[in-house]
Nucleic acid binder design. Structure first.
Length: 107
DNA sequence: CTCGTGACTTACG
DNA sequence: ACGTAAGCCACGA
């Protein structure tokens, strides 16, 4: 059972519209915390996979972060990034195309 | 309670 | 712009 912190993160992440992405920072702000790193841990746990699309979460600068770059080789992650690109969020060279355009801001 | 870890961010050289 | 260091918070042991 996920911790309360995780629940909040998942709740906010689930609000992200289709074809949009969000950042760890925004997500952290949404839940009212500054634990950006913990967000990552929650994503890694991701007990609510595809329901909670952790692949829609990217770094603050638009980079894929850890789940799409060199991190995926060796680990058994699904082709979430590729799937994401299929939904409209194009990822090129570890970067989200038109990042600011597809970025969903909570506030 | 203390310690180590981490899919992060920001600051500095 | 790039690599390194420090800061930050939550979680499991």
């Amino acid at each position: 059972m996920p911790s309360l912190f995780a629940e909040q993160v998942y709740a906010e992440l689930r609000k992200v519209p289709w074809g949009r992405v969000t950042t760890y920072k925004e997500l952290a702000r949404a839940v009212g915390t500054k634990a950006y790193r913990s967000i990552g841990q929650v994503m890694r746990a991701n007990p609510f996979a595809p329901e909670v699309p952790c692949h829609r979460v990217v770094a603050s600068d638009g980079s894929i972060g850890g789940f799409g770059g060199e991190w995926r080789r060796g680990k058994k992650i699904d082709d979430k990034v590729s799937l994401l690109a299929k939904e409209g969020v194009v990822v090129n060279d570890g970067r989200v195309v038109d990042f600011e355009r597809v970025l969903f801001r909570f506030r």
